[in-house]
Computed example of a mutant assay.
Amino acid sequence: MSNGLHTTKAQGVRVRLAVALAAICFSGSASALDYQIHGYAAQGFVLSQHNDFFGDSTDGSFNYYEAGINAAVQVQPNLSFAVQAAVRDAGISDDGSVRLDYAVADYRLLSEATVQAGFRAGKVKNSLGFYNETRDVVFTRPSILLPSVYSDNQNQRSLIFTSPGAQVYGGKSIGQHELTFTGTVNAEHDVRETDERLLVTLSVPYDLRIGDSWNLQLMDSIDGGRWQFAYSYFAGQFRMSTDIDLVGRFDVDLNVFSARYNAERFTITAEYVLVDNDNRLTFMGFPFLHQRAAADSGYLQGEYRISPKWTLMARMDGFYHNRHDRSGHDFAAANPGVDRRTQFSHDFTIGANWRPDEHWGVWAEHHWINGTATLQALENPPPVSNQRWSMLMLMVGYKF
């Protein structure tokens, strides 16, 4: 993809974003409309030992920040619009460019005390696990870095947070159970050039697109949300084309199982994801490579609210490229010269959050990690020699 084409696309996104924001702000000036405008900004710092994460963090990295502004307008009792522009810089994983994070028209078909149903269209949020829909703002995350289920350092945010498409949703209360459903169909769309290099490494020019994808989520909230159980599913297909008639198709399936218990002072959360990949390459129409991969990850997390302003957090997190080879020994035997430690990651994290008022927040967390599966190879060129490493992450955020 040429730089000129990339620039044109970026300019087009900015123009559409400016028009959308201007329209919402202009519409909000009418006294009959109910509108809201909010924004956030957060600056992070990472200091790691042995390996780099979000920039040159072994020397201390400020190359981690995020900011956004969003607006919502209620034009009719059952029709609303919402849009957000955002920037995020996270080392090699994100480049800090302005993007349209989401832009949604929401039409509520049914709104009663015990039953709700509606339809959304535009660039919609995908319902995956407990945190994908709220991962954009640090105030709505349990920590600075999300668990490996959400692949924060593999640039999954821009790939699965939102997508152009249509979404149906609904909910029904039955006794102490509040059952909700969300189903989304995403249209085929291009992968940003800055993201392509993190997914595919080739010495020839190529273009990567996400084919039609879909996801659904079923959730049961019991006793006012004291207990929550959810199942999420995502299916998508990446399609790659090159100038040398090398064609790739990469099918991805995610199954996410989520459970949470909320008490007055503490919350316990656990999630587990099964990831299945079916990768195929053809050259000049002939099969060239067929590879299957079965990854998984999961975590157990506890949050304790000391006071309305202070929260403590602890988490045990594990990620494996192959759930049938958790030690990586089979992979290393089949790929001489490749370290088995690149196939797994065990992360123990403790953290604290201070909210002095409704606008400001301060986060601190320390990670002790065994394995290098969650590292970006472009930030840590192989061979990576340090299996055990650690990092301190700090972040200060403001919202209005």
Score class of each variant (00 low, 15 high):
residue 372 T to Y: 07
residue 376 Q to L: 12
residue 234 F to S: 01
residue 399 K to N: 01
residue 9 K to V: 02
residue 121 A to V: 11
residue 266 F to D: 07
residue 236 G to L: 05
residue 54 F to D: 00
residue 223 D to H: 09
residue 359 H to A: 12
residue 46 V to Y: 00
residue 397 G to N: 05
residue 284 M to N: 14
residue 222 I to L: 12
residue 141 R to W: 06
residue 183 G to C: 10
residue 188 E to S: 14
residue 293 A to L: 12
residue 91 G to L: 05
residue 7 T to E: 12
residue 133 E to N: 09
residue 305 R to M: 14
residue 110 L to Y: 03
residue 370 N to A: 10
residue 43 Q to T: 10
residue 34 D to Q: 15
residue 116 Q to L: 07
residue 21 L to T: 08
residue 47 L to Y: 05
residue 180 T to I: 06
residue 33 L to R: 11
residue 227 W to P: 02
residue 159 L to I: 14
residue 265 R to P: 03
residue 304 Y to S: 05
residue 68 G to Y: 02
residue 51 N to C: 11
residue 1 M to E: 02
residue 59 D to W: 03
residue 259 A to C: 11
residue 341 R to Y: 02
residue 372 T to M: 13
residue 192 R to Q: 11
residue 244 I to H: 00
residue 218 L to A: 13
residue 162 T to Y: 02
residue 210 I to V: 15
residue 219 M to L: 09
residue 237 Q to T: 15
residue 127 S to P: 02
residue 364 A to M: 12
residue 167 Q to A: 13
residue 172 K to Y: 11
residue 386 N to Q: 09
residue 167 Q to H: 10
residue 181 F to H: 03
residue 178 E to G: 06
residue 289 L to H: 00
residue 45 F to I: 06
residue 374 T to M: 14
residue 74 Q to H: 14
residue 336 P to T: 08
residue 99 R to V: 11
residue 351 G to F: 02
residue 148 S to A: 15
residue 122 G to M: 10
residue 309 K to F: 08
residue 2 S to H: 01
residue 170 G to T: 09
residue 364 A to H: 01
residue 170 G to S: 08
residue 13 V to N: 03
residue 366 H to K: 12
residue 84 Q to C: 03
residue 43 Q to C: 09
residue 133 E to R: 13
residue 211 G to H: 04
residue 94 D to L: 04
residue 391 M to K: 06
residue 275 V to L: 12
residue 123 K to P: 01
residue 318 G to D: 03
residue 26 F to Y: 10
residue 98 V to F: 09
residue 315 R to Y: 04
residue 355 R to Y: 08
residue 93 S to V: 13
residue 266 F to V: 03
residue 249 R to G: 07
residue 366 H to Y: 15
residue 3 N to W: 09
residue 363 W to V: 01
residue 34 D to C: 06
residue 356 P to W: 03
residue 372 T to Q: 14
residue 73 V to L: 13
residue 397 G to H: 01
residue 274 L to D: 07
residue 43 Q to A: 13
residue 116 Q to N: 15
residue 353 N to F: 02
residue 13 V to C: 01
residue 335 N to D: 00
residue 7 T to Y: 05
residue 267 T to V: 15
residue 30 A to D: 09
residue 40 Y to N: 10
residue 9 K to Y: 05
residue 137 V to H: 00
residue 294 A to W: 00
residue 333 A to F: 02
residue 21 L to R: 05
residue 157 R to M: 11
residue 262 N to T: 14
residue 102 Y to A: 01
residue 261 Y to Q: 03
residue 331 F to E: 02
residue 244 I to A: 10
residue 241 S to E: 13
residue 267 T to C: 11
residue 346 H to C: 04
residue 308 P to M: 10
residue 353 N to Y: 00
residue 183 G to T: 12
residue 95 D to T: 11
residue 102 Y to C: 00
residue 266 F to I: 06
residue 355 R to C: 08
